[in-house]
Amino acid sequence: MAQATGSRSGSRRPNLLDRWLRRRTRLDLPLTLAYRRIFILPTRFGWMLGVLMGAMLIGSLNFNNNLGLLTTFLIAATAVNSMLLAFRNLDGLHLRHGKARPVHAGEPVEWRMAAINESARDRTGLQLDSGEAASGFDVPAGTTQEVTVRLPDRHRGWHRPRRMRIQTTQPLGLFRAWSWIEPTSRFLVWPRPASGAPPLPEGGDDRQGLRSQALEEGEDFHSLREWREGDPLHRIAWKASQRHQTLLSRQFRRERSREVFLCLERAPGRDLEERIGIVTAWILRAEQQKRPWILEIGAQRLGPDASERHKHECLRALAEL
């Protein structure tokens, strides 16, 4: 990113600043940035220019150099203006809906938030800084902007983003105005799929692996269709045919799909993490092949199903372990 940001203690211990901030304001989204939430301090460059201005002031005063003084004061007044403008850039900005869609461990989390600029002025050069990464954005007047910050990869499970700040050093880079946000909404990180996972368990005993259900035609009634030459007589739906004044024959579903039975306890792998990784890889593979699967974790049993929703449920269950 373009600029280094202030270091932050990595510990989660609530320090003085944290406690003070929490007492001062609510930090959870949705937020509207306002006077009490916005902090302003000079940037490093701001301090440098301040020192330079101090030197100019003393020199000009000493020699009663009026043009030198005027130059100094012009810069000082510009600095004051730039402070106000930095504040204005944040003041009244609405922040909403902080969330991240689930990813696998090892992939960066894309945490996103909506920034809404209700005012009639553009807001440019804003930055969302999570402490680990930062991303810049602009919000033109009267629009809503999606802001995404990439958080580094995390371990599987539920996480909350750390305290972030939304900041700006507009227009001259002299002052940094910022506001803290600490979203309480959690996001999920799925387990990382094992890279060298064995193929989907086929065959073998019927607990782990394939549940072959080569269904006979005719177990599951499926639907009716017009009778065609060649349909066996016992398939004719007499009652329905009478209702509709035409011969209808019953269609039967043929169970072709073969369910895969995935059991966490019996998956190969030295420890739990490794087994979770392998099962995760299996789930992804099964979903890709559109084969229904059952996941068994201890006493919990999910499926059979091959839908995306099922996949999410399974991955979530694995992540929460």
């Binding site: 020699f63 004061f73 012009l74 007044a77 730039s82």
Partner: peptide, 27 residues
Amino acid sequence: QSALLLVSALPMALALWVTFPRLAEPL
């Protein structure tokens, strides 16, 4: 933009210039 910044800095700069205490004798 820069002209706007400069113009808006003028009133304050002039006020400072007029009212800033001067040294009667150089240091």
